[in-house]
Write a protein that binds this DNA or RNA. Structure first.
Lengths: 196, 196, 196, 196
DNA sequence: AATGAATGAGTGTTCATTCAT
DNA sequence: AATGAATGAACACTCATTCAT
C-alpha cells in the first residue's frame, strides 16, 4: 500500500533524465566532437556529476550509440512519413531529401553526430553504428534504384553525388536562409534533367 | 670501396624528419581524428619520442596547420595545373574536379585531414585553417561563377551539390574501382544538362 | 565488542583529506619551494594519486593560495588574540611580535610558505596572495603607527627593520633555543629605546 | 704564424660570452626563481641555444653557483672597501650596511639571487653555496662582535635584527626613494641607542 | 664556440571509469 | 537515482642534458 501510493506521488517524470543526458551529449558531441567532449562536461550540461551518467549508460561509446540510434530513428521516421505520401519515384526521392534536410533543423545535434561520426570511430560500438548508417542510407539507395531510365549516367555516381550533398549540408545549411523543400526541389531538379 | 661509397650515400636522416613527422601525423589524424591521435603515437610512427616533435612543431595544433597547408598546397597546385590546360568553362570545372579527386588518391592522408577538420576545430590555428579552406574553395566558386546560362537553377545550390559530392568523396572513393577522370566526367555530365 | 567499538571509531577518512593534502603541500612547498615540489610528490605524501588532488583543488596555484589563506588566518588569529590582551602601544606591538613568532613554530610550514612566496609569484592567484599579505602586514603597520613620539627616527624605517627581522626569522629561529616571548622582548627593547 | 696572427685579429672580446650568460641567468633566476627559469630562456636571453650553455657551465646548478660567487665577490668587495675607510666600530658597521644596500642597487640581480636562494636549494652545489653565504655573513658577525658594551641586550638578537632587515631589503628597497646611506644611518641610529 | 636535433624523465592536468554510500 | 571521492592511465608539453658536427 505504502509502496504503491509512493510510486504514484513520487517522480512525476518517468525517465526524462536519460533524455536530458542524451540531449546534452548530442549537443556536445556535435559541437566539439566525440573525443573533445568530456563526460564531465556532458554531465554538467545535464545537471549532474560525471559518475552519475553511468547509471544510465555503460560507457561513453554507448552514449554515442544511443544518440546515433535516436538520430537515425527520428530521421528515418521523418523520411518514412514523407515518402509514404508520394508515389512517383522522383517525387518520393525529393520528399525524402526534404525530410532529411528538415530533420537537420529539427534534430540538429543528433543529425550532426550521425553525419560527423566517421565510420571507424566508436571502438566497441563501431559495427552497430555502421549498421545504423547502412540501414539509413539503404532507404536512399532504394529510392534511387527505383528511378526510371538511367540513360548513359552511372546510377552509382548519381547516388554519390546526392549522398555527398546531403551529408555535407550541415556545413552550409542555415535555416534562416535555406528551406528544406527549396533545397530538395533544386537538387532533384538538377539531377532529374540528367536522366531524361 | 664499400666505405667510400657509403660515405657518399650516407646521412640516413638528412632533413626529412619534419616531412616524416608530417606524413605520420597526417596518417594518424586522418585515420583516427585530431583528438584521438596522440603525440606519442605520432612520434612513435615517425620513429622518435614525443618530446622530439616539439623541436619541429610548436604544438599539436601547429602540426595540424602544417598538414592542412601542405595538403592545400598540393591540391591547389594540381587543380591549377589542370585548369590551365582548358579554356571552356565546363571543361575547366571538370578538369578541376578530376584534379581534386586525383589529389585525394595521391595525397590521401593530407586531403582527408583537410576535409575532415571541421571549420570550427583547431583552437588557436582555427582562423588560419579557415583561411586556407576558403582560399581553396574559392577556386571552385570562381569556376562555377564562370559557367554560362544559369537558367532557373540557383547557382549556389549547384555549388553546394558539387562541393558536397567532392568533399564527401574520400568516404566512398576507391582507386581500384573509381578513376578521377570518370567520376569527374559523370558528375559534370549530370550537372551540365541541368543548365541547358 | 571489538566489532561495535570499531563501528564507532571507524571512518578512517571522514573529510580530512583536504586538510591532509593542505598539510602535505605546505610541507613540500616550504621545504623545496613551490616550483620544485611536484603534484605527484604532494599526492604521495598525502597518500593518494596526483589526479586525486584535482578533486579538491583546481590547480597547483589554488593549492598555494589555500595554504597562504590558511597560514594567514592562523597567524592573524594568534596576533589578534595577543594584542587584545594589551593596551599600551609598545606592549601591543611586543605581543604581536611574540604571537607572530609563536605562529612560526606552531604552523611552521604554512608560515614559511607565506614568507617565502615572493610577491610576484603565483600567476593567476598572484593578486589574491598579495591581498592576503597586505592585509596581514597592515596589522603591524597600524601597531607601529600607534606608537608615541617618533623623534628623529623615520617610522617607515623602523617598520622595515622590524618587518625584515620578523620575516627573516624562519631562517634562524630554533624552538629549542629561542622562545617567541624572549625574542619579541629583546627586539622591542632595542627599538623602544631609539624612540625616547 | 697563421695561428698567432689569427689569435690577434680574431675575437676582440676574450670571454664575454660567459659574462653575458651569467647576467642573463642572474636576471632570470632573480625574477622568476631558480626552478621557474629554464635553460632555454636563459640561453635565449643570452642570444644562444640552450645546448650552448654547457660549453661554459657544467650544469644549471653550476650556473647558480657561479652567480652566487660573483654576487658574493662584488658585495664583499664593496663592503671591504667601505669599512676600510672607517675605524670606529659603529661607523664601520654603518658603512658595511650602506655598502651592502648599495650593492643591491648596483648588482641587483646577483644580490637577489644570493638572498632569495634558500639554504637548502642547489642540490650538489648546496654546500659550496652555504659556504659563500657563511663567509659573507661572517663579516657582519665580526663587525657586530666588535661593538662595545652589549648592555642587557643579547648581541645575537641584535645581529638577527640587522641581518633580517638587510636580507629583506630587496623586497622594499626602491632606489628612487631610498638611499643606501640614509637607510644605513637610520638603521644604525636605532640600534646604537639601545646599546648605551 | 656553438648548433641542430634529439633524449627520456618529468611537468601539471584531464580522462573515462568505479564504487561505497 | 545520484553523489563524493578516488583511480590510474593518458594527455600535451617542458625539462635539463647530450653529442655529433
Amino acid at each position: 500500500m505504502a509502496g504503491s501510493s509512493q510510486s504514484l506521488t513520487r517522480s512525476p517524470r518517468p525517465d526524462n533524465r536519460r533524455e536530458l543526458l542524451l540531449d546534452a551529449a548530442a549537443r556536445l558531441f556535435s559541437d566539439e566532437g566525440f573525443h573533445a567532449a568530456s563526460m564531465r562536461d556532458i554531465a554538467k550540461a545535464a545537471g549532474m556529476l560525471s559518475g552519475s551518467i553511468y547509471y544510465h549508460f555503460e560507457s561513453k561509446e554507448e552514449l554515442l550509440l544511443a544518440i546515433y540510434e535516436e538520430g537515425a530513428r527520428r530521421l528515418a521516421e521523418a523520411v518514412e512519413n514523407a515518402i509514404a505520401r508520394e508515389t512517383d519515384p522522383w517525387a518520393r526521392l525529393e520528399a525524402a531529401c526534404a525530410a532529411h534536410l528538415g530533420g537537420l533543423i529539427a534534430h540538429r545535434d543528433y543529425a550532426r553526430v550521425m553525419i560527423q561520426t566517421p565510420p571507424d570511430a566508436g571502438g566497441s560500438v563501431e559495427s552497430r553504428i555502421r549498421d545504423l548508417r547502412r540501414r539509413y542510407e539503404a532507404r536512399f539507395r532504394a529510392l534511387i534504384e527505383a528511378l526510371p531510365a538511367p540513360g548513359d549516367i552511372d546510377r552509382r555516381y548519381l547516388r554519390m553525388l546526392l549522398f555527398g550533398a546531403l551529408n555535407w549540408s550541415p556545413v552550409w545549411f542555415r535555416p534562416e536562409r535555406d528551406s528544406p523543400e527549396t533545397v530538395a526541389k533544386q537538387f532533384i531538379a538538377m539531377l532529374r534533367r540528367s536522366l531524361n
